[in-house]
Amino acid sequence: MNVSNESRIGVFMGYALSLTTAMAVLWLVLSGHYDSTLLLGLGAGSAVFASFMAWRLHILDVETSPYHRLWRFVLYWPWLLMEVIKTNITVIRTILSPDMVLTPRMVRVKTLPDTDMGRALFANSITLTPGTVSVDLDSDEIIVHALLKEMTDKAGFADMAARSARASGEKPADKAGGMK
């Protein structure tokens, strides 16, 4: 990636800032004590400490601090929720049926988001919808185990991949530099 040093520092500071803010918000939700200046100060210190640790561990980047893209995920979530409910009903019906008929399949899904974030989100979305579990994530495919053969619909996977790519902040033109 050809980023000038200055803008790299700028991006880096952005991650640090968004991570610290997110951690401070998390502290406020956890704490519930807003009247004590000591605790608020400690919270601010702890948020900075969490960011410092992230920096110290060399993980201060977009994957650790995706919080400035949270709104995209908020848009993705309702769709995923509907999918989760639908597939859950199918799987529960299968489990409950007295003469259970399973048609397990292992399929390879070739359409993947470009960034690692998007892939992780895609793989976890597959696992979150019962009936499909992402078994292995390779550089160019995901191996998915499906409980029923109806669940191995190519178009469905492609749709989910596109949506999770968008949710992880991928623009169509953006060729990301994640690991290949």
């Binding site: 790299r8 201060l60 980047d61 977009v62 530099g177 994640g178």
Partner: peptide
């Protein structure tokens, strides 16, 4: 997993 050094940001 390989460590992604700073500067590998997407």
């Amino acid at each position: 997993s390989k460590m992604q050094r700073r500067g590998d940001h997407t």
